[in-house]
């Protein structure tokens, strides 16, 4: 295990070194991706200047929802770069997975180490800025439990969305092409999570509660942090389901991944 981790770190340092070869374009990329995502928040902000609130959530409260999920998604997108379905499907098509299988190192560690897109810090930074704005305007009533639970929630978000990336990548064992429809739950999931769940139609909310339990990742924890009542009448422990739901997603995905990999080894695509 220690050997695997130290090798993973070496793989990552290689990635970082080759990305820093083109320093100017790197920083331009960081800046523009940050700006792109920020513009989405700005457009919501501007509309709220006219309208006041969305489903009873003020701009600062929305900023909390948005900022938290953006920081987590950016972090996930960086750590799980190798499992980005776009990246991984190309990886398979180029036959790079064969090289991975020929090395005496854990396969997952190698895929995690095969890409680490550092320029995602642009997205993370803008998320952090918005989150900072939220904290500055909200006056959250912090308790020790809240302070302890915040990092747990964000780690759960990273794990849950990473699981979806992995699931999307696993599909390319069959298709060899990227499965674009997975974007609906990955990028779409982030979009959905950045607003209060009550605004979505029942069926969509059901989908993101029971099939892909994203409502427990952001909305319910936010209710807890901001001491807002739950209009949907879920049990009181709902805000604390995030780590459980994320663990479950990761577990199921890993099983699926293993199944996909064994399928790859029997079809020789």
């Amino acid at each position: 295990m220690r050997r695997t981790i130290s090798l993973y770190l070496r793989f990552i340092s290689i990635q970082l070194r080759s990305q820093m070869q083109f320093r100017a374009s790197f920083w331009l990329d960081v800046f523009t991706t940050g700006l792109l995502n920020f513009s989405y928040f700005v457009s919501t902000y501007l509309v709220l200047e006219r309208i006041g609130n969305i489903a009873g959530w003020s701009i600062a409260e929305l900023a909390f929802l948005y900022g938290m999920i953006e920081v987590s998604f950016g972090t996930m997108d960086m750590i799980f770069s190798g499992f980005d379905p776009d990246v991984f499907s190309r990886f398979i098509r180029l036959g790079a997975l064969d090289q991975v299988l020929l090395r005496p190192v854990n396969v997952l560690a190698q895929i995690f180490g095969s890409a680490f897109v550092l320029r995602r810090i642009g997205r993370i930074t803008q998320g952090a800025v918005v989150l900072g704005f939220a904290f500055a305007h909200l006056g959250v009533h912090w308790t020790p439990l809240k302070l302890l639970y915040l990092p747990v929630v964000m780690a759960s978000q990273v794990a849950a969305m990473g699981a979806l990336f992995m699931a999307g990548s696993t599909l390319s064992f069959w298709t060899l092409q990227r499965v674009e429809a997975i974007n609906v739950v990955t990028y779409g999931g982030v979009e959905v999570m950045s607003y209060p769940s009550t605004i979505y139609p029942r069926w969509l909310r059901g989908f993101f509660t029971y099939l892909i339990p994203f409502v427990f990742m952001n909305y319910y924890p936010a209710l807890f942090f901001l001491d807002k009542p739950d209009p949907l009448g879920m049990p009181g422990f709902a805000p604390f389901l995030a780590p459980l739901a994320a663990g479950l997603m990761l577990f199921v995905t890993l099983r699926f991944w293993r199944f996909g990999l064994s399928r790859y080894q029997s079809t020789g695509t």
């Binding site: 290689i14 070194r17 036959g95 064969d98 090289q99 020929l102 090395r103 005496p104």
Partner: peptide
């Protein structure tokens, strides 16, 4: 795989940018 060596003529095992 610890005990074997493999070379595919049309692919490389080396890190492209390194």
């Amino acid at each position: 795989v610890r005990g074997i060596g493999v070379v595919f003529g049309n692919r490389t095992t080396l890190w492209w940018d390194l």
